[in-house]
Amino acid sequence: MVAALRRLPNPRLTGLGGGLFAATAMFLLGCLDQLLFDGSPLVFGLLFLPVSALTALWVRDADLVTAPIGVPIAFAAGVVPIAGGTGGIGGQTMAVVTALAVQAGWLYGGTLVAGLISSVRKVRLMGRRQPAPVRVARRRTAP
């Protein structure tokens, strides 16, 4: 299984690239959801979770903090096609705000996924960057 995971693409996106990836993916998935499932919030929310995880996994180490910031923005971009507002700009804006409020659980869940993955990656990165004397001292004291 590890060999199969290593064969998957491993892009390293900048903070801006990660945000653009997530926003574009969520907008396209929102359009697809509207087309196939008539704007189902469940389908949209379930599709948001893997996009959040991929964004946090694919952003480069220097930009880890941007993943949990860009993911909620991407969620808002993806809600626009499924919000279903009528009556011009005001009606569409109110539909998007209402959809964001109603689907806040999915929004928090995806942001939590991105935040956890980014945090774990950052902790692992900090562990690898310890100075050599600290690593040697830890090896000597380890049982």
Rank of each mutant, 00 (worst) to 15 (best):
R12N: 03
G90C: 02
V123L: 05
G115V: 01
A99V: 02
G105D: 14
T86H: 13
V102Q: 13
I89M: 09
G115K: 07
G110M: 06
A3T: 11
T141R: 15
V51I: 15
V80N: 08
L5S: 05
G78Y: 09
A99S: 13
T66G: 01
A53G: 11
S52T: 14
G88F: 12
G109I: 05
T93N: 08
V71W: 03
V134T: 14
A137Y: 08
F21L: 12
G90D: 13
V120K: 03
S119Y: 04
Q130W: 03
T86R: 14
A83F: 09
A104G: 06
I73G: 08
L107K: 03
D33I: 01
V134F: 05
L32E: 02
M26Q: 15
A77V: 08
A62K: 13
V71Q: 05
G17F: 07
I117E: 03
R129E: 01
M126A: 12
F27L: 15
F75Y: 15
G105K: 03
L29A: 12
I69D: 09
G78R: 15
L42D: 03
F27I: 12
R6T: 06
G109K: 07
A22C: 14
M126C: 01
V2P: 00
L29H: 09
P143S: 05
Q103N: 15
A23V: 07
A74H: 08
F37Q: 03
A62W: 00
W106S: 10
A132I: 07
A67M: 10
L116D: 00
P133S: 09
S40G: 10
V113P: 11
T86D: 07
T14I: 12
I69N: 08
P68M: 07
A22Y: 11
A56N: 11
V79K: 07
M126Q: 07
V96D: 06
T98M: 10
V65N: 01
A99I: 03
L16F: 02
V65C: 00
T86L: 04
A101P: 02
A142L: 15
G70L: 10
G105F: 07
R140P: 00
P9S: 07
G127W: 12
R12C: 00
V79M: 15
I69S: 07
G19M: 13
L42F: 14
M126E: 10
L116G: 14
V120A: 14
L28H: 05
G70R: 09
A99G: 03
W106Y: 15
A67Y: 06
P9G: 04
A114H: 08
V71T: 13
V65Q: 02
R135Y: 02
V80E: 13
L36V: 14
G87N: 11
P81L: 03
T111L: 06
L20K: 01
L16M: 09
G70K: 10
M1T: 12
G78E: 09
G90Q: 13
T66R: 13
G18V: 11
G109D: 02
A56D: 06
A99E: 06
L8N: 09
M126F: 03
I69E: 07
T14M: 12
W58V: 03
T141A: 14
G109H: 04
L57G: 09
K122P: 00
V43H: 02
V96K: 06
G84A: 10
L5M: 14
R128C: 00
V65L: 05
A4R: 14
V97M: 14
